[in-house]
Amino acid sequence: MDLAYYPGCTLKTRAKNFETSALAAMSALGINLVELPRWNCCGTVYSLAEDDLIHHVAAVRNLIRVKEQGKNKVVTLCAFCYNTLKRANLVMKDSPDKRYAINIFMDEEPDYYGEVETAHLLQVLRDDVGWEKIAGRVKHPLKDLKIVGYYGCTLLRPQSVAIDSVERPTILQDLLKALGGTAVDFPFATECCGAFQIVNNRDIITERTAAILGSAAKSGAEALAVSCPLCEYNLRQTQSSTKQPQSGVPVMPALYFTQLMALAFGLDLAVCGFEENSPETRAWLKNKGLIS
């Protein structure tokens, strides 16, 4: 099965391991993520001002690219891209006045009415593939690995784009269980890491990510499964910039859920790109007996 795939900027640069592991893992499940031949940055954040329609244009153009491929569904991996594309699409679907203005502005593009569904890969895994099939593909179960699903914000908020229960999501834990891991619940699963405040205020990120990591450690987890390159960066940045153990910030890898899939499926380690997470990740996995 082929699915139209929108990568977004960060997956082509600083989160290549997210993409390579996802493509390989999905291929192992018989699904080809076919990258759109043309795409542009989605705008990263969804514009929250009523009169700011120009910032929806970038996202909408990508949805038109999907339609050009004769597809009505596009898959994303990056949680930010998912949110921005999905919300922009809701504008085109549900707000006739804004849709009209945006279509007029994009004179060179065909009119768009919100026909393309944006899906996050986790939704595809749950709804189209199913946990059973995923579990059936596992070669090296992540057994004894205690891991939390860390969702962050953009997969779950606002309600209109939530891929699961806003307050008590289970989709990441369900995947981790299917991969043979021990999914640990923790209370900070949906708490914000500080997001873009990283450009201006590292202290905020340190405070937030330390709280998230601390809560995960308290719950007995050894690693976090993530879906957002910004969360991944912020979690990693705090761990590398604070001096453990004096800082009290637990050391714990934040891995893309697709890396864990590739690992459990027994795929070539090259696609996992663990060295991009941190120099120590491979050693850590070895220590856990997850790679040799």
Partner: peptide
């Protein structure tokens, strides 16, 4: 609110696009 030109170049180089674009869009 944030002056991109005054940010240390090594910080800018280290940050992923997702951080820079979202941060500059907001600030």
């Amino acid at each position: 609110y944030v002056e991109p030109s005054k940010m240390p170049p090594e910080t800018v180089a280290d940050l992923p696009q997702i951080a820079l674009v979202s941060g500059f869009r907001k600030l």
